[in-house]
Write a protein that binds this DNA or RNA. Structure first.
Length: 890
RNA sequence: GGGCGGAUAGUUCAGCGGUAGAACACCUGCUUUACACGCAGGGGGUCGUAGGUUCGAACCCUGCUUCGCCCACCA
């Protein structure tokens, strides 16, 4: 072996990370290959926005995915981790528009074609930034396959999907009320509206009644939007409303205008809310729109697409919504039609992208009819073809899918997939086609014009799992890697993305897009606040990588990850794992200083308890970490590795192996101990590799393993070697650890000079002897009892032997204590406790197997009684023994 | 209105039926040649609350208090 014995005294990640990432790339280790001999494992990355910059959310789910990918590679799967970015329609267009506006240019100045060109230029410069940042994390994506949602191939997929859905009647066009962002000047989907509670006013407005014979002068209507009054076309009351029944069919005059409108009845009105009657403005309210359709009412638009009052708004024309509101209130007041104003809190929708208040806006839009697609999506989860982890998200998913509403997919933007529909200027027919048509398919007129809208970005994202693999072409990748194995993402895009991928996957691939969906929690700051730039509490992963190293960041994120709870991240936490990296580094450094060039065989006859212990623990880790990762419990996996390395390996094994490695116990022991040490690292480094790829690769090389095996990344996942697993040694070791701890306390009390403090005690205990608890209890008894300067511990039985170092700790003291008795009693207590637990479990097991009532009815009650009495007898006995122990100690 | 999740040491969180754990912080003592990014020890918790199930509950069930999230409605 070519060992590197000159490791730096502390671990510095910087150069090491860069070095290995380049080497992995060079060796093509991230490349996914179709290998019929191997099972496939695939993940498509949730594509970050091209405008994006790496934040901890990305860092978190990418760490998770990388851990899965690296583990699966080591397990022998052919792994595809497919990266890419999302063109992010509104977000990107906004960024470029903002840039332009700094130069005083608007996108309209440039025109569509020029503007789109500018966005592409921007993408060329900044679009790869997020990808470069992802690489810093150590992501093992197959970068050769990087995709972009506006790529040629993906655009083709989008177009194919659009045309097929249209032909199937699942895409339609129509004039509806949609959520409209006046600032972005585009429609947005229901999901892109974010609601927040706001202070507003409730205006009580009098609508004079035309018919003088009904006994009332006016109808009182409460509204939050007086500026839309001029767009009113009716007043609605509940059909069974006693209060207004006699007014149905009568008319009122719309304030601020000369129009007269009818009083109608509709179930949508809640007689308990407000005044019990509602003004109907079909062009500016979604509910009113529906009422309008049902009653065949006119739709009067008074606000335009920019949020400005239009020609229909009379004197308010040209005002903003806010101005018009104030003006109309003023006017109503002066006309004596405003009865009162009430302060209320109501929730107001805002544009997800820019925060502008969303307006319901009547316009021609394209929609996906989602019901039929959603039904299949629900079915796929119900019959287990898709599994949600944690399972609870299933409910959220079902709830949304079962109440799904049609999806508005048209956007009045320039950046995106242009809708492949052409309207004929002559006959009005719409031609939808995969290949740009030259004439109307209906009347063959050449006078056709393409729809100017583009598609919602999320439509292209919904195709991501298969469009990235070459669909609609019949690519071998699709056959081999689709459906993907796992989707890892946050709950915030379950509806936006996950649900839609499921629908599209089922529709176009006739199969689910992924087998498992892992939904991870939100990362918050150390105080539980959502991270945001405005709050300034953002933890920038790149800064953390600079400061602590990518491995430390990854290990932190992995270890903190837990299902069903938000993750609170702070830099001190990352620091903890930074320390861990250093610990690992130094442990390896110690090992290297003590290993010969040759690898020594482990001579089983030379193994001491601590050797057997660490070997067994190591094999256990190989087993359990794999199982934990396979069940997506990377949090427990990471934490158990941390405890194992720091606790078992460093605190105990390395310390206890020192005398042997120094040669104090002879050459045979030295060689075997070296062999054990080697085995520990050779197994543990690969276990850590998915979590902390860089440091493990560096150490792997330092140990000299890369000569024949090359990279650790290419190594196989260590199998648990039965040969190195010894029964009972873990318990025995825990006994020893407790004993040593107690002895250290004794020593401390005895003011033994530090030089003589116990570093090492060789205590042999027969296998099958007491648990750790017994010994520690009894030793604690001793330490409590003794005037420490008189303490020596007597050998309780032949199974105890003390190493030489113990006497140096305890000096010349001497004690006589009934250790054996204490031990026996304690042992008996433990035995009884275990027995009780066992009986309890038996009872519990038989009860859970059957229905409880059923069990009691059918099971022999006397058996249960007998078991129960055994338990209470045992307990009584324990009480007696405890008292006994107490007296023995005195 | 519907749904989901949390409440455990000063703080952040594990544990989820068998005698309360970690990290950080705090206190004490240590330049013991892998590591002061360290070592050894210590203090600190009636596991939100009231009931219930059980031989046994932080853990299961019910109510309550409280914090947070999602969906729907909001004229």
């Amino acid at each position: 072996m070519n060992r590197n014995r000159n490791l730096e005294k502390s671990y510095s990640p910087d150069s090491i990370e860069q070095k290995w990432y380049a080497k992995w790339l060079e060796a093509g280790l991230f490349n996914a290959e179709i290998n019929p001999e191997a099972k496939a494992f695939s993940i498509v990355i949730p594509p970050p926005n091209v405008t994006g910059s790496l934040h901890v959310g990305h860092a978190f789910d990418h760490t998770f995915q990388d851990i899965m990918c690296r583990t699966k590679r080591m397990e022998g799967y052919s792994v595809l981790w497919l990266p890419g970015t999302d063109h992010a329609g509104i977000a990107t267009q906004n960024v470029v528009e903002r840039d332009l506006s700094k130069k005083g240019i608007s996108r309209y100045d440039l025109g569509r074609e020029e503007f789109v060109k500018k966005v592409w230029e921007w993408k060329g410069v900044y679009g790869s930034r997020i990808i470069e940042q992802l690489k810093r994390l150590g992501n093992s994506c197959d970068w050769r396959r990087e995709r972009f949602t506006l790529d040629e191939g993906l655009s083709k997929a989008v177009r194919t999907v659009f045309v097929r859905l249209y032909q199937k009647g699942l895409i339609y066009r129509g004039k509806y009320i949609v959520n409209w962002c006046p600032r972005c000047a585009t429609a947005i989907s229901d999901l892109e509206v974010e609601y927040s509670e706001e202070q507003g006013s409730f205006y009580y407005v009098k609508y004079p009644i035309i018919e003088k014979d009904c006994g009332e002068e006016y109808l009182l209507v409460a509204t939050t939007r007086p500026e839309t009054i001029i767009g009113d076309v009716a007043i609605a009351v509940h059909p069974r409303s006693e209060k207004y029944k006699h007014l149905i069919g009568k008319h009122v005059k719309v304030p601020l205008t000369d129009r007269e409108i009818p009083i109608i009845q509709d179930n949508m009105v809640d007689p308990e809310f407000g005044t019990g009657c509602v003004k109907i403005t079909p062009a500016h309210d979604p509910n009113d729109f529906l009422v309008g359709l049902n009653h065949n009412l006119e739709q009067i638009q008074v606000i335009d697409s920019q949020g400005i009052m239009n020609d229909n708004a009379g004197k308010y024309k040209g005002m903003t919504i806010e101005q018009a509101r104030q003006e109309s209130v003023k006017d109503l007041e002066s006309m004596g039609l405003l009865l009162k104003t009430e302060k209320i809190t109501h929730s107001v929708g805002h544009c997800q992208r820019c925060g502008t208040t969303v307006e319901p806006y009547l316009s021609e839009q394209w929609f996906v009819k989602t019901k039929p697609l959603a039904e299949r999506g629900v079915q796929a989860v119900k019959d287990g073809r898709i599994r949600w982890v944690p399972e609870q998200w299933e409910k959220t998913y079902f709830n949304w899918m079962e109440n799904i509403r049609d999806w508005c997919i048209s956007r009045q933007l320039w950046w995106g997939h242009r809708i492949p529909a052409w309207e004929c200027r002559d006959c009005g027919h719409i031609t939808v086609a995969e290949v740009d048509p030259t004439e109307c398919e209906h009347c063959h007129s050449k006078n056709i014009i393409q729809e100017s809208d583009v598609l919602d970005t999320w439509l292209s994202s919904a195709l991501w799992p298969f469009s990235t693999m070459g669909w609609p072409e019949d690519k071998p990748e699709l056959k081999y890697f689709y459906p993907t194995s796992l989707m890892v993402t946050g709950f915030d895009i379950i509806f936006f993305w996950v649900a839609r991928m499921i629908m599209m996957g089922l529709e176009f691939m006739d199969d689910v897009p992924f087998r498992d969906v892992y939904i991870h929690s939100l990362i918050r700051d150390e105080h539980g606040k959502k991270m945001s730039k405005t709050k300034g509490n953002v933890i920038d992963p790149l800064v953390m990588i600079e400061k602590y190293g990518a491995d430390a960041l990854r290990m932190t994120l992995a270890a903190l990850s837990v299902q069903g709870r938000d993750i609170l991240l702070s830099s001190t936490r990352i620091e903890t794992y930074r320390f861990f990296m250093n610990k690992l580094w130094n442990a390896a450094r110690f090992a290297l200083m003590n290993l010969d060039d040759d690898v020594h065989e482990i001579d089983k006859s030379q193994l001491h308890l601590h050797d057997k212990f660490i070997l067994t623990r190591t094999q256990e880790m190989a087993q359990s970490v794999r199982e934990l990762i396979d069940s997506y419990d990377i949090g427990t996996a990471a934490r158990s590795l941390y405890d194992f390395v720091w606790g078992d390996v460093c605190d105990w094994y390395l310390e206890m192996s020192k005398p042997a490695l120094k040669g104090d116990e002879g050459e045979a022991r030295r060689k075997t101990t070296a062999g054990v040490l080697e085995e520990v690292f050779r197994t543990t480094l690969p276990l850590l590799h998915p979590f902390t790829p860089f440091i493990t690769e560096e150490l792997w090389a330092a140990f000299g393993y890369d000569e024949s095996e090359k990279f650790i990344m290419r190594s196989s996942w260590p199998e648990a070697k039965k040969d190195f697993m010894f029964a009972g040694v873990i318990d025995e070791m825990r006994v020893l650890q407790e004993s040593v701890r107690t002895l250290r306390n004794l020593r401390a009390e005895a003011h033994v000079p530090p030089q003589q403090w116990l570093n090492r005690a060789v205590i042999r205990v027969d296998s099958g002897t007491a648990s750790a608890k017994i010994l520690s209890d009894s030793l604690n008894q001793i330490s409590n009892l003794c005037r420490v300067h008189e303490v020596v511990i007597q050998q309780p039985s032949e199974s105890w032997t003390y190493g030489a170092s113990l006497s140096s700790v305890t000096g010349d003291c001497e004690i006589k204590l009934p250790v054996g008795d204490v031990l026996d009693v304690a042992k008996e207590i433990t035995r009884l406790e275990q027995e009780i637990a066992a009986i309890g479990k038996t009872i519990a097991a038989s009860q859970t197997r059957l229905d409880k009532a059923d069990f009691i009815a059918r099971a022999p009650a006397e058996v249960v009684e007998k078991e129960r009495s055994k338990v209470s007898e045992g307990k009584a006995q324990i009480e007696r023994l405890r008292a006994n122990l107490e007296s023995l100690s005195k």
